[in-house]
Design a binder for these strands. Sequence first.
DNA 1: CGGCAATTTGAAGGCGCTCAAAAGTAGTGG
DNA 2: CCACTACTTTTGAGCGCCTTCAAATTGCCG
Lengths: 216, 216
Amino acid sequence: MANQELSTASYHRHEAFAGRPPVHASPAASLPAFFPAGAEIYAQGENCRNLYRVEFGAVRVYRLLADGRRQISAFHLPGEIFGFEADDRHHFFAEAICATGVRPLPLSSGRGDLAGELVPAVLQGLVRAQEHLLVLGCHNAVERVAAFLVDMAERQGGLLHVDLPMSRTDIGDYLGLTIETVSRGFSRLKQKGIIRLPGLRKVEIVKWQVLQDMAA
Amino acid sequence: MANQELSTASYHRHEAFAGRPPVHASPAASLPAFFPAGAEIYAQGENCRNLYRVEFGAVRVYRLLADGRRQISAFHLPGEIFGFEADDRHHFFAEAICATGVRPLPLSSGRGDLAGELVPAVLQGLVRAQEHLLVLGCHNAVERVAAFLVDMAERQGGLLHVDLPMSRTDIGDYLGLTIETVSRGFSRLKQKGIIRLPGLRKVEIVKWQVLQDMAA
DNA sequence: CGGCAATTTGAAGGCGCTCAAAAGTAGTGG
DNA sequence: CCACTACTTTTGAGCGCCTTCAAATTGCCG
C-alpha cells in the first residue's frame, strides 16, 4: 500500500517548491506546505487548526472502520478547499495522493476576503457529497466508474485527457467497489470504445456523451 | 406509491395547526406552513425562495434518475433545517413524509439571530451526508439497516422506542437497497433479539450496544 | 367482514466479491 | 542497454449476497 507513490522521484520533482514564496499572496493565509506522496495532512481526532486549499497535486479524505474497511469521501484537486468539520476535531484522515502543495487557511477569520469564500466552499462540498451519495445508492459498477471519470474530467477543465493521480485501490474505496471490479469497469468502457487507456493513470475519453449518459 | 400516507385521517390529525400562531415567534421567520403526507415542499429546478425548519412531522429530500431510480439523500426530523443549495435553484425534491409543519426561513438575512445558526446547520448537513457515504460505501444490508436505526434513535433523543414515519420503500431508497432486502434486515435483527417490532412503523431497540457495533 | 395496500417470506438468478494467476510498469543494478 | 525485482493492474473462475419475481401474510379502513 505504501508504494511507488513514496518514491524519491516523485518527491524531488516538487521539492524546490518548499522554499518558494507563496504564489497567491494573501494577508490572512499562511505559507504553503509541501507533502510527499502518501504523507498525512491531518488525522482523525486531531484538533482542527485550519482549513486547506490545494495548490498542486491531489488529496484523499477518508475514514477507517475498525476492521480496516476504508471509505474515501472525497478527492480534492488544485483550487479546492477542504478540512471543514462540524466541531473542533477532525473526523477524517487527509493524505497527499502524490506530491502535493497545500495552503493552510485561517479557520474563522471574522473579517478578510476569505469570509465570503468559505460558505460557497462548504456548500460545494455538500453538493459533491450528495452527488456521490446518488452514485453509491443508485449506480452499478460500470456506472460508478463512468460517473467518476466524468467528474474528474469536469474538474480538470472539461478536457478529454484525464490524469488520475490515485491508484485503483483509491478509486475502489471511493466508489464502494473492489479494485478488481474497478479494473473490469475500465476494461469494459475501453472495450466498448468509450475510453482509451494511454497509460496506467491516464484516460482519454472518446465518447463523452455516452460516458455522461451512463453516469446519468 | 401514493399510498395510505395520503389518507384523510393523517391529514386531519394536524389540520388545526394551519390556523395556529407560530410556536417560536421570530422576527425574521415567516409563518409556518402545513403539508399533508406526500405533499411536495419544493421540486428540482424550482427557485430557492428560502430555507425550512421542520416544526413537526418528517421530510424526505431526494433526486430522481431518468429511469425512475430514486435516491433519498436525507430525512429531516423536527428541529432540523434543510433546503441548502449551492446556487439559486433546488437540485432536489422535498416532500412531507407524514403530516408535517415547516417554517420557511429567510435565505440570507445579513443580520439576525439566524445568521449564526445557518453555518452550523450546513456543516451538520455535510457531516450527515459524509456519514451516509460511509454506510453506502462500506456496509452490507444488515449493517445499513442497523446504522439507519441507530441514527433515527439518536435523532429522536436516544430513546429505545423509535418511530419510523417513512415506509420501507423510503428506507430502501435511502439505504440503496430494495424493500425486500430492508425487510429481511429488520427480520434478521428481530430474529437475533436485537430489536422488536411492536408495530409496522415502530421499533424497540433491545440490544443497543450490539446494534451500534453493527453500524460500526 | 371484506378489500386494498404494505410488508414479509420464498425461490431463482445476476452482479460484484474473493481467491488465484498472469500481464504490464517502474525502478535498480549489472 | 538490458535483465531483474517488486509492485500495480488486469484477467479468470467460483461463490455469496442482494435483486428480481412471485406468493403469502399482515394491517388498516370502509
